[in-house]
Simulated assay, not measured.
Amino acid sequence: MKRAIIAIIVIGAALVGMFMILNKNKKKVEAETAVVAEKNAAVAVRIDTARTEAMNLAYQANGTFMPKQEVTVAAETGGRVVRVLVDEGSRVGAGQTLAVVEGDKLNVNVSNAQAAYDIAQSNLQRYQSALTTGGVTQAQVDQMRLQFENAKNNLKSAKLTAGDVTIKTSVSGIVNSRKIEPGAYVSPGTPAFDIVNVSTLKLRVNVDEKNVATLRVGQTVEVLASVYSDKKFTGRITFIAPKSDGSLNFPVEIEIANNPNNDLRAGMYGTAVFGGSGTASALVIPRTAFVGSISDNKVFVLRNGKAIETKVQSGRSFGDLIEITSGLQAGDQVITSGQINLLDQTAVEVIK
């Protein structure tokens, strides 16, 4: 009996000991888990510092050169092409004949109209003579005069149409494309030549709202071409859009006089440089610090291990850096990545 009681006491003591050990281990695990959970609650971010720098005031915008004049010359009458007088690459002047279309049928029309005119003129003279003798009435003479005027107008129209057998250009430039060959048949309106004038070109660029306010029509602008690193061109602003696009950019058009060798060609990549070469001191932060678009003017500032949502006022754009005119001070640390996971007062952990 004694042995049974002792055994029960020993087993009970063992169970109590095991329970105490397990309970202690449980508290330790819970404490460690809480530490890990607290650490994992912090959002990983990268930061940069708002700083005052001497910034180059020049603002660059890119675009593609376009010809100031580009015209497709078409045939005005139908017929068979007899001769083509220019090739692709030929320089042509306004009013120059580019091709000749067969005009036999048109000449027949002129002959018929001339014959009708001669008959109407003879009849009018005969009726006017007969009016003096009373052989015809004034109304008959007036009717004959109307027929004569119609015949004269028809003859004039036929001659004008016959003159259209030549295809001429209305602008000066270079033949960029020839679309007809001798022997081909053309109808009225058939495209025959593309004429491009590159003595003057246009460069169309987009300027953001912060910089467009400093631009004026007629202002001189330095223009660079990517293929000519050693050459600079001068342009003049001819158009500033009164309305921005969806990205708050304003289309600006610049006119550039080509050099005597016509080095600039339509389709080349160009850069307009606005603002000259001066510098100014500005408080700047990286473009990536902004939440959403720059126009939203919202950033997160790191303070005491937390992300603080801050409203700022952005200024000029300097490439990857944006000027801040209010809302931040030099030395403030702004979050530049990880903002998608942040709300105001979110705990953060800075990574490098």
Score class of each variant (00 low, 15 high):
Ala7Pro: 08
Val10Tyr: 05
Val16Asp: 09
Met18Asn: 11
Met20Cys: 11
Met20Gly: 09
Lys24Thr: 15
Asn25Trp: 05
Lys26Gly: 02
Lys27Trp: 06
Val29Asp: 12
Ala31Ser: 13
Glu32His: 03
Val36Ser: 04
Glu38Lys: 07
Lys39Cys: 02
Lys39Arg: 12
Asp48Asn: 11
Asp48Phe: 00
Thr49Cys: 00
Ala50Pro: 05
Ala50Thr: 09
Glu53Gly: 01
Ala54Trp: 04
Asn56Trp: 04
Tyr59Asp: 07
Asn62Arg: 10
Met66Trp: 00
Lys68Glu: 14
Gln69Asn: 13
Glu76Phe: 00
Arg83Tyr: 10
Leu85Thr: 05
Val86Pro: 02
Ser90Trp: 00
Arg91Gln: 14
Arg91Asp: 14
Val92Tyr: 00
Gly93Leu: 11
Ala99Tyr: 01
Leu106Val: 07
Leu106Ala: 12
Val108Asn: 12
Ala113Gly: 05
Ala113Lys: 04
Ala116Glu: 15
Asp118Lys: 11
Gln121Ile: 08
Asn123Ser: 14
Leu124Lys: 10
Gln125Val: 11
Gln125Ala: 14
Gln125Lys: 14
Arg126Asp: 14
Gly134Lys: 04
Gly134Cys: 07
Gln138Met: 11
Ala139Cys: 04
Ala139Asn: 10
Ala139Val: 14
Ala139Gly: 01
Arg145Lys: 15
Arg145Thr: 14
Leu146Tyr: 07
Gln147Cys: 00
Ala151Leu: 11
Asn153Met: 13
Ala158Pro: 05
Asp164Met: 15
Thr166Met: 10
Thr166Leu: 07
Lys168Gln: 15
Thr169Gln: 02
Ser170Leu: 11
Ser170Ala: 13
Ser172Met: 06
Ala184Gln: 13
Tyr185Ser: 13
Tyr185Gly: 01
Val186Arg: 04
Val186Gly: 03
Ser187Trp: 00
Thr190Glu: 05
Val196Cys: 06
Val196Lys: 03
Val198Pro: 00
Lys202Glu: 15
Arg204Met: 13
Arg204Asn: 15
Val205Pro: 02
Glu209Phe: 03
Asn211Phe: 01
Thr214Ile: 09
Leu215Phe: 04
Leu215Ala: 07
Val217Leu: 06
Gln219Pro: 02
Leu224Phe: 07
Ala225Met: 08
Asp230Ala: 13
Asp230Ile: 05
Ala241Met: 03
Ala241Arg: 03
Pro242Thr: 09
Ser244Phe: 01
Ser244Cys: 08
Ser247Gly: 09
Glu253Leu: 02
Ile256Gln: 02
Ala257Thr: 14
Asn258His: 03
Asn259Ile: 08
Asn262Phe: 06
Leu264Cys: 06
Arg265Gly: 11
Ala272Glu: 11
Phe274Thr: 12
Gly276Thr: 10
Gly278Tyr: 02
Leu283Asn: 10
Val284Asn: 04
Val284Ser: 04
Ile285His: 03
Pro286Ile: 09
Pro286Ser: 05
Gly292Lys: 03
Gly292Met: 06
Gly292Thr: 09
Ser293Pro: 00
Ile294Glu: 08
Ser295Tyr: 08
Asp296Ala: 09
Val299Pro: 01
Leu302Ile: 05
Asn304Cys: 03
Glu309Lys: 10
Ser317Trp: 05
Ile322Tyr: 05
Gln329Ala: 12
Ile335Cys: 03
Thr336Gly: 00
Ser337Ala: 12
Gly338Pro: 06
Gly338Ala: 08
Leu343Gly: 12
Leu343Lys: 13
Asp344Asn: 15
Thr346Met: 07
Glu349His: 06
Val350Thr: 08
Val350Gly: 05
Ile351Arg: 07
